[in-house]
Amino acid sequence: MSEKHAEVGGAGLVGLSTALLLRRAGWSVTVHEEADAVREIGAGISLHQGACSVFEHLGLMDRILAAGVDLDASQALSHTGEVLADRALAGAYRQLAIRRQVLIKMLADEADAQGVEVLTNSRVTGATADGVLLLAGGKSRNADLVVGADGFHSAVRESVGLTDKKVQRSNGATRLLIDYDKASGRTVLEEWWGPATRMGIIPIGGGQTYVYMSSRESDRRATQVPIDPDYWGGLFPAVDKEIFQLLSQVQDARHDRYPYVKPKAWSKGRVAIVGDALNAVPPSLGLGATLGLRNARLMVDALGVHDSVPDALRAWEATARPDTEWIQRWSLFRERLSHNLPAPLARVRSKLLQRSNGFRGWGNRGRNFDEQLITGARR
């Protein structure tokens, strides 16, 4: 039987990982990247055990561990420094932190080593349901499977009519890297909660710290780049003032509104969507990358079971969509909890964070968010 071929639009985290998963399953794969080189926009990333299970499957975990930080604990703190939750990170609750660009380069190098073709300066403009990837300049590529991993504004998703909802939310975040490392003993992910703002401070190794600062988009002082150290220092008086001074000096900081995507369907014919094209979600649970990687692996697993690509894609959606939408609902709820509560309810929110151990593990079906996304646990 001849080797099946896939064309993937987008060489980001999920696009490259999908290509590696398909290659490992015996497919030939070509990945298209619009930029002139494979690079990641962003600062750091936290990988939950669901993501780690995918990278273990791909044989990449030793390299990721060598380049990042295996976090010991996660804390939720009030803006005045009160510890609301302190959760050990191990097993199903494991989290790693790493620079995004380091991870992307690792994936790109592995793709090259495994014989995945990556074409740069190749802009995807759409697809057709019979398995044709459309490119700028009137070019096209035929495939047994076309995968749109081309992000929130996915041309693949739009071209085959899969979009139901595509929303830029009224809240967003600025993400930055700084040279700061004052860890003593445990490596801890700190999440600081203000009345309508939130900060994450995460050691990522090599003497660097990844910081995200989220707020309402209507708060212009909170969203400005470079950041206003006096404003943020006033919002979080218990955070080391040196952090805000260092953050204010970062010239390439990036601020983005939170995205949300709900597709009508996950595929059409021989075309599927993955990553932010499929399940973009406010990162209030920090599970966007894990969700994208988990869904990509389940898609490739389904392709290995069904002879027909369209049948496999429909079976994949039936299996993976309920949990995806469950995570998205809770992410939207936690986003509102972070930024859209009336001020008098902030004290109630603190109690919720204490009772739910940092808001990890409450769900309408009584399952833990992190544990549910470990694909290996289903076998």
Rank of each mutant, 00 (worst) to 15 (best):
M199F: 02
A35K: 15
L77T: 02
R23S: 13
G172V: 05
A108I: 11
Y210T: 04
F55T: 04
M299Y: 01
W362D: 01
L77E: 12
S2L: 13
V167D: 05
I202L: 02
L134R: 15
G200D: 08
A312P: 14
D228Q: 10
A111Q: 11
P283G: 10
T18Y: 05
N171K: 04
V261P: 01
E335S: 15
F152W: 11
Q101C: 08
I227S: 14
D86G: 08
G161P: 01
A6M: 11
A183L: 04
I41E: 11
L177M: 09
S215M: 08
D240T: 04
R198M: 12
F359P: 01
A19F: 07
T209S: 05
N364W: 10
A85P: 00
G376T: 15
G363V: 03
A277N: 00
D164S: 15
S28L: 12
E217F: 00
D301M: 08
A66K: 08
S46Y: 04
D307I: 03
V261C: 01
R99I: 09
A289C: 06
A111S: 13
G358A: 08
D164V: 12
R347P: 10
V261N: 01
L89F: 06
S170Q: 04
Q354E: 12
E335Q: 14
A85T: 03
L133I: 02
G126M: 00
G131E: 03
G12W: 00
L107D: 08
F333I: 13
A143T: 10
R123G: 04
A173K: 00
V8F: 15
S78I: 03
W232E: 00
R198A: 11
A92M: 03
S122C: 13
S218L: 02
S184P: 00
V8C: 05
V146A: 11
D144M: 13
G200T: 12
A272G: 02
R355D: 06
K241W: 01
S53Q: 12
S248P: 15
W27H: 08
S356H: 09
I327Y: 14
P310F: 01
V132M: 09
W316C: 11
T375D: 05
P259Q: 08
G304H: 11
G151D: 04
R254L: 06
L373F: 09
L103C: 07
Y212P: 04
S331N: 08
R349S: 12
E82L: 08
V348I: 09
A238I: 09
S140L: 09
S218M: 06
Y212W: 09
Y212V: 10
L58P: 12
K165Y: 02
A19W: 04
S338C: 08
K264R: 14
V83W: 05
R216T: 15
I227P: 09
P344H: 01
G200A: 10
R297Y: 07
M106R: 02
T174R: 03
S331P: 07
G288Q: 00
A253V: 07
K105T: 14
N295M: 13
L60Y: 06
R216A: 09
G275M: 07
Q224A: 13
K351H: 12
R314M: 07
L287S: 06
V124D: 01
A76W: 00
R329P: 03
V274F: 05
A90L: 05
R297C: 01
W193S: 06
